[in-house]
């Protein structure tokens, strides 16, 4: 683990991320069609944009993966010509970094729903900080700001936490995760049978 991620890990992470990058772009149009509803209903689905990090980490279970995934998803979105342009890159770095910090705090040893939710919340905090710098949401009136934050947090917990967790559970059932996770010592021991 010292030597960092292997080529296989990186490529798989990036491909997962790029797949979500495509989802992110499609999600953009949903987001904009919900936006006119007002009252920050749109913020409820904002959390989808944090999902790549937790999913990639839960699939690969290796350090650095969550950060890489969010950056890669953002760059994928960027190259495909997202109208959000460079913004997504900056946001991606911050969101990925915050999620990564959560996984790091658990020393990359916990893969349950709670870590996923915590990581989602962290990404959400990151994005809100960015919004203060970029969108000046601090100037919104207080009730409005509160509504905004609550909606976004709920959405993040749902999409990037709970949904991501179950998505990976289903992926596990397909056996792909065996490809990219370290082999257990039990399997090595079984070689000496008979």
């Amino acid at each position: 683990m010292r030597k960092g991620l292997k080529l296989t890990d990186i490529l798989v992470t990036i491909v997962i991320a790029v797949a979500f990058g495509i989802v992110y772009i499609l999600w953009g149009s949903i987001y904009y069609s919900v936006k006119p509803l007002g009252l920050h209903v749109d913020q409820l689905i904002y959390g989808m944009w944090f999902i790549a990090g937790p999913v990639a980490f839960l699939v690969m279970r290796k350090p650095g993966v969550a950060l890489l995934a969010e950056i890669a998803a953002a760059s994928g979105e960027f190259f495909l010509g997202s109208p959000w342009g460079l913004t997504v890159l900056l946001y991606g770095v911050v969101q990925g970094l915050f999620a990564e910090l959560v996984f790091m705090a658990f020393r990359y040893k916990k893969f349950n729903m709670s870590v996923a939710v915590l990581a989602a919340i962290a990404s959400c905090v990151g994005s809100v900080l960015m919004d203060f710098a970029y969108g000046e949401i601090g100037a919104l009136s207080l009730w409005n700001l509160l509504l905004f934050m609550i909606a976004r947090f709920i959405g993040s917990i749902f999409f990037a936490g709970v949904f991501a967790y179950y998505l990976v559970k289903v992926l596990e059932a397909t056996g792909v995760t065996n490809l990219v996770r370290p082999v257990s010592s039990k399997d090595y021991a079984a070689l000496d049978q008979k």
Binding site: G175, N178, V183, S184, D187, A190, L191, D192, Q193
Partner: peptide
């Protein structure tokens, strides 16, 4: 000797 993870037999 070789065995795929999760398989019973070699």
């Amino acid at each position: 000797r070789l065995k795929f993870p999760g398989d019973e037999s070699l």
